[in-house]
């Protein structure tokens, strides 16, 4: 007879527990949905998703394609990181372009609507064309108040809309993937991760992320208290002056809307130190799109945003 196992030997760290839960979600959705896809912006959260999906199905390849919405205003460093990942994983990449969607009349560029918002129509059009029934998204519940109440399996009706007041109860690890024709599911494997968990995991796994997350010199100008990158898509307005600063990005999105923070954090450890003492949320610090109204995210999500 051997001694029964003691519990002290069988403990998982919080990162290992989060990883195990996310892998469970990936496998569950891959088994239950006919045509899933992984939404990848090339940002750190979607790259962590790629890493978890790689682990979930290894040594097989990802059993679903990677879907990217090309805003036309993406940071080249972000697209480069995405391409490296897709190539290494041998995954199929599906790109839905906002430019194309505008050209085809799927969405209307009135000059006032942000590219971020035009992504919604572009995304829903791609879902319909490709017939995707589930989309993995990198949303985390710590990001924003409306997300704090979203399910891991988040149901979308046949208009792609989220109905926050009428969500399915979600218990234990038992996810309900039932759909009717035309509906789809958003699946959020990182629901229980925080920004700090993501960074600790990137450090532990030595995950390649776009270089713009690390401190670097950049030509920037100040708008609404945030540093924006100088580019042809985002011309300076009168009174705005381009200067050289050492900055990094805490989130990456449409470059006309994503602000940088002044920082000399050029390694993962320094970034973790910086975030551990940060007093402003990552979206509050750097996302023009969430500042317009208190319920900005909730409104976009209802329409079908990520």
């Amino acid at each position: 007879m051997t001694a029964p196992p003691t519990h002290a030997d069988y403990q998982l760290s919080q990162l290992d527990q989060l990883e195990a839960e996310s892998i469970h979600i990936f496998r569950e959705a891959a088994a239950e949905f006919e045509k899933p896809a992984l939404m990848c912006s090339g940002g750190k959260d979607s790259i962590v998703m790629l890493r978890l999906a790689e682990k979930a199905f290894y040594p097989a390849k990802l059993p679903f394609p990677v879907l990217q919405i090309d805003t036309g205003y993406d940071f080249p460093e972000v697209l480069a990181a995405r391409d490296n990942w897709v190539k290494r994983l041998g995954a199929r990449l599906v790109v839905a372009s906002v430019e194309e969607a505008i050209k085809n009349g799927v969405v209307v560029d009135d000059g006032k609507t942000s590219r971020n918002r035009l992504q919604i129509g572009t995304l829903l059009d791609a879902v319909e064309k490709e017939g995707f029934t589930a989309l993995f998204g990198g949303g985390r519940r710590d990001e924003e108040k409306a997300r704090a109440k979203e399910r891991v399996y988040s149901h979308r009706d046949d208009f792609g809309q989220w109905d926050p007041k009428n969500q399915r109860p979600e218990l234990w690890g038992l996810y309900n993937g039932r759909l009717h024709g035309g509906e789809h599911m958003r699946v959020f494997p990182l629901s229980n991760w925080t920004e700090l968990d993501i960074w600790h995991y990137i450090g532990r796994e030595q995950i390649e992320i776009p270089s713009i997350y690390y401190a670097h010199e950049r030509q920037v100008f100040k708008r609404d208290g945030m540093w924006f990158t100088e580019s042809e898509f985002n011309p300076c307005k009168p009174g705005e002056e381009v200067v050289t600063k050492v900055v990094r990005f805490r989130t990456v999105g449409d470059l006309t809307l994503t602000g940088a923070v002044e920082s000399d954090a050029d390694t993962i450890d320094k970034i973790i130190d910086e975030i551990a003492v940060a007093r402003v949320t990552e979206r509050g610090a750097t996302r023009g799109d969430d500042r317009f109204s208190e319920a900005a995210m909730e409104d976009r999500k209802k329409e079908g945003y990520f």
Binding site: H24, R27, A30, A31, F57, Y58, P59, A60, K61
Partner: peptide, 12 residues
């Protein structure tokens, strides 16, 4: 059992 992993690749 959640998922059967079958790579069907030359290496595996």
């Amino acid at each position: 059992v959640q998922y059967v992993v079958r790579p069907k690749s030359d290496d595996f």
